[in-house]
Simulated assay, not measured.
Amino acid sequence: MDMMVRNANRRVACEKWEDVVGPRIKKMLDKVGQRATQYRAHIGGEFVFQVTGFGENGSQHAIDLGLHTCTCKRWQLSDILCVHVICCKRFNKQEAVLYCHDYLMCTTYMQAYTPVINLIAGEDDWEPVDYPIAPPSFNKLLGRPRKKRILS
Score class of each variant (00 low, 15 high):
Met4Val: 08
Val5Lys: 14
Arg6Tyr: 08
Cys14Ala: 12
Glu18Arg: 13
Asp19Trp: 11
Val21Asp: 01
Gly22Trp: 10
Pro23Gln: 05
Arg24Met: 14
Arg24Gly: 12
Lys27Tyr: 08
Asp30Ile: 10
Gln34Gly: 07
Ala36Asp: 06
Thr37Asn: 09
Gln38Thr: 12
Tyr39Arg: 04
Arg40Lys: 14
Arg40Trp: 04
His42Ala: 14
His42Gly: 10
Ile43Gln: 15
Gly44Lys: 13
Gly44Glu: 05
Gly44Trp: 01
Gly45Asn: 09
Gly45Leu: 06
Glu46Trp: 08
Glu46His: 12
Phe47His: 07
Val48Tyr: 03
Val51Cys: 07
Val51Leu: 12
Thr52Leu: 09
Gly53Gln: 06
Asn57Lys: 06
Gly58Tyr: 04
Gly58Asp: 04
Ser59Cys: 10
Gln60His: 07
His61Asn: 02
Asp64Glu: 01
Asp64Ser: 02
Gly66Leu: 15
Leu67Glu: 14
His68Arg: 14
Cys70Ser: 07
Thr71Pro: 06
Thr71Ile: 11
Cys72Asn: 00
Lys73Cys: 14
Trp75Cys: 01
Leu77Tyr: 09
Ser78Asp: 02
Ser78Leu: 03
Ile80Lys: 05
Cys82Asn: 01
Val83Ser: 01
Val83Trp: 00
Val85Ile: 08
Ile86Gly: 04
Cys87Ala: 12
Cys87His: 00
Cys88Asn: 09
Arg90Val: 02
Lys93Asn: 15
Gln94Thr: 00
Gln94Ser: 02
Ala96Thr: 03
Val97Ile: 15
Leu98Met: 15
Tyr99Asn: 04
Cys100Ser: 14
His101Asn: 07
His101Trp: 06
Tyr103Ser: 11
Thr108Trp: 06
Tyr109Trp: 05
Met110Glu: 02
Tyr113Asn: 02
Thr114Ile: 07
Val116Trp: 00
Asn118Lys: 06
Asn118Cys: 08
Leu119Asn: 08
Leu119Cys: 08
Ile120Thr: 13
Gly122Phe: 13
Gly122Tyr: 13
Gly122Ala: 15
Asp124Tyr: 07
Asp124Pro: 00
Asp124Gln: 10
Trp126Gln: 10
Trp126Gly: 04
Glu127Gln: 14
Glu127His: 11
Glu127Lys: 12
Asp130Ile: 15
Asp130His: 13
Pro132Gln: 11
Lys140Cys: 03
Lys140Thr: 06
Leu141Tyr: 11
Leu141Gln: 12
Leu142Trp: 11
Leu142Met: 11
Arg144Tyr: 12
Arg144Ser: 10
Pro145Trp: 04
Pro145Asp: 05
Arg146Trp: 09
Lys147Thr: 15
Lys148Glu: 09
Lys148Tyr: 07
Lys148Gly: 00
Ile150Gly: 01
Ile150Tyr: 05
Leu151Pro: 08
Leu151Phe: 12
